[in-house]
């Protein structure tokens, strides 16, 4: 029964992004900064390190697909990038010790990478006219700050949750 808590936690994380957007005014900072919530992605990375990598990749595929279909309509983007980044992160954390401060840097790096890949894809399919400098200034910095704050608040609860779930599954 306790095993059902894992999908539940992931579903909560999945919807947390859009719930954040309900509370957060889109015109904050007069549109000068566009922070993007990546809470689900952070949760997924925690899962890959503190729970199990392959499960995280499967969840990444599945929920990335849902994200593509439900929110963006551009099929394939998150479906592909989320598992890829989970995989590279798990490789990175094998070389670096995954203490929470080190993991903080890794996660910010991953989010920056995800943002840049999504930006690149949008340029490729001509859905945006933003130049890279504008993108870096308007979106990337704000996104890193927002998700950094999220990490600082939720890192320890998330880690504990996944460690406890790992015990349940073992």
């Amino acid at each position: 029964m306790k095993k059902a808590l894992l999908p539940l936690l992931v579903v909560v994380l999945f919807y947390s992004d859009s719930v954040f957007m309900i509370f957060f005014s889109e015109q904050a900072f007069d549109g000068a900064y566009v922070p993007v919530p990546r809470f689900f992605f952070i949760g997924l990375l925690f899962m890959s390190v503190f729970f199990d990598r392959n499960t995280a990749i499967k969840y990444g595929f599945f929920f990335g697909f849902l994200f593509d279909m439900f929110y963006t309509g551009l099929l394939g983007a998150y479906f592909f990038f989320l598992p890829l980044l989970v995989y590279t992160t798990s490789k990175l954390t094998k070389w670096l010790h995954s203490t929470l401060p080190v993991f903080f840097v890794i996660i910010l790096f991953d989010i920056a990478l995800l943002e840049m890949m999504i930006y690149g894809l949008n340029v490729l399919v001509q859905r945006t006219a933003l130049s890279f400098e504008q993108f870096a200034y308007v979106r990337l910095l704000a996104t890193l700050v927002l998700n950094g704050l999220f990490y600082i608040v939720f890192a320890i609860p998330l880690r504990n949750a996944f460690l406890r779930l790992k015990k349940v599954f073992d």
């Binding site: 309900i22 566009v34 919530p37 439900f70 929110y71 963006t72 551009l74 859905r127």
Partner: peptide, 12 residues
């Protein structure tokens, strides 16, 4: 919902 990745101007 509004697209949380804020790239496409779409709402649900």
């Amino acid at each position: 919902a509004r697209n949380p990745d804020r790239w496409y101007e779409v709402i649900t």
